[in-house]
Amino acid sequence: MFDLILTNTETVPGREIVRHLGLVQGSTVRAKHVGRDIMAGLKNIVGGELKGYTELLSDAREEATRRMCEEAKTMGANAVVNVRFSTSSVTAGASELYAYGTAVILS
């Protein structure tokens, strides 16, 4: 999916970190759309998984990760370690998906 090695541990198994390049980050703000909202409203009567929202959030998270990877690549990194995800709601009906990590060069 991404041509970098991503881990959320501080090291990469079996590889040695030669240099730390610094923090890289990627974020995206997404709003839910009306069609999905109506479906979710109906689904809310019976409960259970809201697939529209699951997809929306995982797409958004992928986008944030891709932006982070692009930043890492421009720095000349070949891996990002200690990746973390966080979500914050900026305004009603929209949330920010944020991914950050440390860009490194592996041997």
């Binding site: 541990t9 501080e10 090291t11 409960g47 929202y53």
Partner: peptide, 28 residues
């Protein structure tokens, strides 16, 4: 655990899973 054991094959990969669930109307 953060610490990886020594005996493992090189390279790792980030994996994730997410889900959104809601309660039903009665429970609400």
């Amino acid at each position: 655990l953060k610490d990886l054991p020594l005996e493992m094959q090189p390279n790792g990969m980030l994996v994730s899973g997410n889900v959104v669930v809601a309660v039903d109307y009665f429970k609400k």
